[in-house]
Write a protein that binds this DNA or RNA. Structure first.
Length: 515
RNA sequence: GCGGUAAUAACUCAGUGGUAGAGCGUCAGCUUCCCAAGCUGAAAGUCGCGGGUUCGAAUCCCGUUUACCGCUCCA
């Protein structure tokens, strides 16, 4: 475990050292759980997004893409359940370090008063037997009346505090009632804090006319609210899918583990609309397709696993995660959910619009069911880097650090290197570079020994190094040096383009997906 | 959010009250016909930030920010 954490630390350092990921706002001491992508990181990230987009939109004729805005009408988040589901007032006990929902603590206190009343009644029942009149007892017994009035007073005060969203009052209630932590038994409480999942901002240029709106916490809702637009204008027939890549924002209570859990992150989501009753077969279809997509990259099949959810979200009737073996254990990279008709029905209800699909085969209208595939770009990025990062022992006791990135994702596809910096080799190298750069992201390097340059390229995961030597000037051939094996092959410059193109474009991977 | 630990050059770290250092990397040059070779030279640090103690603080104290670990929370 210690060794794994060590690898993770080195990976984070490597990300910074080689321009993949920088802490945000670093020269101002940073900003918590926000990161920037550097010159190599942005290339890798863009390649991941393209691999996903092409696999979903290009390969599946019944999947189309959209790009909806980050700002959306605030009612959308009412409908989706985000406004109500993630607004709990929380309080910590300083002695036990346990966290509780403040409203639950108070509700438990209310229940205690109820218990006391019930006990009095049970006692009295035994005492009076058949002649017992419960209603009269409730109205007259001093003990019951006392507990009951305490309870009513508490309920009134509690309801008002909740209604006013008065967090100080909630804390004061807990103190006044002498509510103790069940573990430490103390009343040493922190302030009550509200944890909002969503970021808010204001739309409107004048303060008084401004409307409070949210930064979207998921891209999915942008798809649901455009369901009718896309279905009608694209003449889409169920089953069909809508894909989207975009930023989302969440105030995580604990944001940790580098770019694994960030406050600003990017999602690649597809919502696939199906006939009610057919959702499980499509759930299985996408489960299998998505796993193939991951495995096609060749990072090792044993590094992936499904993790089925036991506890389902309020909208789902089946859910599974695709997990990747990170240095800190198997972690969720992608979620596949059967979301039922929850979202479309909610939006129909809140918007007052009819959101249904007329199915000509069945000759009836229905609200489609939804299968969602949702993958975090940043998590994918981290899993690829974690799987690719290797410190290798070479013969002679040397080590090298290499990123064994899938060629299709590598930020730089090839480096063009004159073997030495004279005899016209740099000029020839520039010539080769100028034709290759039309198609591939290339790097030219003539500084330092050839070995050093190879290692520099290894460190950023460049799959091919093309070296121009004296023979090149004679017969127009170059050596291609492969990152993973460090072996070299002599090829003619004319053949270079085809050879590299075959390995860095997605076509071969996509063939695997369609089999 | 609580507790613990940490923060010194792009990276990894040494320096524990008295002149800010090393390795690696970077840059310039020489050398070099294929795997971090060698030689010469150079640049690069608000010692995380703010306050305090002291003749004097990277070093001691307080606060704060950021990160890591544990707990907690989590569609």
């Amino acid at each position: 475990m210690a060794q794994q954490e060590d690898v993770f630390k080195k990976l984070v350092a490597h990300c910074k050292e080689y321009g993949f990921v920088f802490p945000s706002s670093e020269i101002y001491d940073g900003l918590g759980a926000v990161y920037d992508y550097g010159q190599n990181g942005v290339e890798l990230k863009n390649n991941i997004k393209k691999y996903w987009w092409d696999a979903m939109v290009k390969l599946n004729d019944n999947v189309v893409g959209i790009d909806s805005s980050i700002f959306m009408h605030p009612t959308i988040w009412k409908a989706s359940g985000h406004v109500d589901a993630f607004n709990d007032p929380l309080i910590d006990n300083k002695d036990s370090k346990k966290r509780y929902r403040a409203d639950v603590l108070i509700e438990e206190q209310l229940a205690k008063y109820d218990d006391k009343v019930e006990k009095e009644i049970t006692k009295a029942k035994k005492k009076f037997g058949d002649t017992f009149d419960e209603n009269k007892f409730r109205e007259t017994n001093p003990n019951v009346l006392r507990e009951q009035s305490k309870r009513d007073a508490l309920l009134t005060r509690f309801a008002k505090a909740l209604n006013d969203n008065n967090l100080e009052e909630l804390r004061q209630i807990i103190l006044d009632e002498g509510i103790v932590c069940p573990i430490s038994g103390t009343t040493n409480w922190t302030e009550v804090r509200q944890f909002n999942l969503m970021f808010t901002t204001e739309m409107g240029s004048t303060a008084d006319g401004a409307m409070k709106i949210y930064l979207r916490p998921e891209t999915a809702q942008g798809i649901f609210v455009n369901f009718l637009n896309v279905q009608k204008t694209g003449r889409m027939k169920v089953p069909f899918g809508i894909a989207q890549i975009g930023k989302a924002f969440r105030n995580e209570i604990v944001a940790r583990q580098f770019i694994f859990r960030m406050r600003e992150f990017e999602q690649m989501e597809m919502q696939f609309f199906v006939r009610p009753g057919e959702e499980m077969q499509w759930f299985d279809y996408w489960k299998s397709f998505r796993l193939k997509w991951h495995k096609a990259l060749g990072m090792g099949d044993e590094n992936y696993q499904f993790h089925d959810h036991d506890k389902l979200a309020h909208y789902a009737n089946a859910a599974t995660d695709i997990e990747f073996r990170m240095p800190f254990g198997f972690k969720e990279v992608e979620g596949i959910h059967s979301r039922t008709d929850f979202d479309l029905s909610q939006h129909a209800k809140y918007s007052g619009k009819k959101i249904e699909y007329f199915d000509p085969e069945l000759n009836k209208s229905y609200t489609p069911y939804v299968i969602e595939t949702s993958i975090g770009v940043d998590r994918m990025f981290l899993s690829i880097l974690a799987g690719a990062y290797k410190e290798e022992e070479l013969e002679g006791g040397e080590t090298r650090v290499v990123l064994r990135l899938p060629a299709v994702l590598a930020p730089v596809k090839l480096a063009v290197l004159p073997l030495i910096k004279k005899d016209g080799l740099p000029e020839k190298a520039r010539e080769v570079m100028n034709t290759m750069k039309l198609e591939f992201n290339c790097q030219y390097d003539e500084k330092d020994s050839i070995g050093k340059r190879y290692r520099r390229q290894d460190a950023i995961g460049t799959p091919f190094c093309v070296t121009i030597d004296h023979q090149t000037l004679q017969d127009n051939t170059v050596t291609v040096r492969y990152r993973d094996t460090m072996e070299q092959e002599r090829v003619s410059i004319d053949a270079l383009h085809t050879m590299i193109s075959k390995q860095v474009t997605g076509a071969e991977l996509f063939n695997k997906l369609l089999q």
